[in-house]
């Protein structure tokens, strides 16, 4: 009898679990579709970042190592480590096969300083030995190492 009860309870539980899984899946499908359509319209983070970097690309060499600085390289500026990491990774992806090296040691340095105007960016990068080469929208700048 206990054997039968146990089997019956297991089957009931299984039926409940299967029904819950099927209902949850069925409810999930239309929501996923709506989100996908919205993303197709607006683009994902990488697509948006690509628009931001597109004007810069003609001014870069086709390959080689470029420097990359962002708020975390400028003493005193606030930043989110996660955002900085993601933006650097997206930039590396979009600018490949060029290699991005964090820091200001290279001849050409891409700067991602979203909150700074061109004048502020120039002042902030000067202590790193950089001269502003060209400014783009959304806080994207191209610097060149100043002659010693």
């Amino acid at each position: 009898m206990a054997h039968k009860l146990r089997a019956g309870a297991a089957l009931l539980l299984l039926a409940g679990l299967a029904a819950a899984a099927l209902i949850a899946s069925a409810l999930q499908a239309p929501r996923l579709r709506e989100q996908a359509v919205a993303i197709q319209r607006s683009g994902d983070d990488l697509a948006l970042w690509a628009e931001r970097l597109a004007p810069l690309i003609p001014y870069l060499p086709e390959r080689g190592v470029l420097g990359y600085i962002s708020e975390r390289d400028i003493p005193g500026l606030a930043y989110s480590a996660t955002d900085q990491g993601e933006e650097l990774a997206m930039s590396q992806f979009l600018l490949a096969p060029r290699i991005l090296e964090q820091g200001a040691r290279r001849e050409l340095v891409l700067a991602n300083l979203g909150g700074l105007s061109p004048q502020e960016a120039e002042q902030a990068a000067a202590p790193l030995g950089l001269q502003l080469e060209r400014a783009f929208d959304y806080g994207i700048y191209l610097f060149r190492r100043a002659a010693p």
Binding site: L22, R33, A36, Q40
Partner: peptide
């Protein structure tokens, strides 16, 4: 059902997440 859900979800991040790019 699973194939449909996976297909619908695949479109949400066409470039994948951090590890992908």
């Amino acid at each position: 059902l699973g194939a449909l859900l996976l297909w619908l979800r695949a479109d949400l991040q066409p470039n994948g997440n951090f590890d992908a790019y």
